[in-house]
């Protein structure tokens, strides 16, 4: 299987040795064997460490937590989507809502020229306002939402294209 983390893709393989299950990541064996304790509770063990690991999942994600740290993995159905998006991402930026919330203010209008770092939109959730900024220099091509509308996490808000 392949897992993507922070723009890097990791190749994770499970394999059995004697009666124990091990894992290889990018071809290197991880020095832990794994045990299942119950539906959400797993353990990774080696000669001097035991780590209790907790895992839960929903439709689209798998959540892994241990020793205060937590990780969220998302299922991606089609490998090719990535390459297409990656290429497109070079020339445009879609500003998405980082959380479900209310659009307080749209600072730009379609056709505006914006610089890298310019504020674009203000979203409010849980009583806190978060300003979203452009990470490229370009032109505001499309605004998908209106002020005071409710949006979900990852909703596309504004499309900015490089000049």
């Amino acid at each position: 299987m392949k897992i993507k983390y922070d723009k890097e893709i990791y190749n994770v393989e499970n394999y059995k040795e004697k009666e124990d299950l091990f894992v290889k990541i990018n071809g290197n064996q991880l020095n832990y064997k794994f045990k299942k304790i119950d539906e959400n509770h797993y353990q990774a063990l080696n000669s001097n460490r035991k780590i209790d690991i907790f895992i839960a999942e929903d439709k689209l994600h798998k959540y892994v937590g241990f020793e205060g740290k937590s990780y969220k993995f998302e299922k991606i159905s089609n490998e090719n989507t990535y390459n297409e998006v990656d290429e497109k991402e070079l020339n445009e930026e879609i500003i998405k809502s980082p959380m479900p919330g209310n659009i307080v203010k749209i600072i730009v209008k379609e056709g505006d020229t914006v610089d890298d770092g310019d504020p674009i939109i203000i979203v409010e959730a849980m009583k806190m306002e978060t300003t979203l900024y452009s990470s490229i220099t370009g032109i505001v091509k499309k605004i998908y939402i209106q002020e005071n509308s409710q949006v979900d996490s990852d909703t596309a808000l504004v499309l900015i294209e490089k000049e």
Partner: peptide
């Protein structure tokens, strides 16, 4: 470890 545990589960 997180990657491995996800895969193992």
């Amino acid at each position: 470890i997180a990657l491995a545990a996800a895969s193992f589960s």
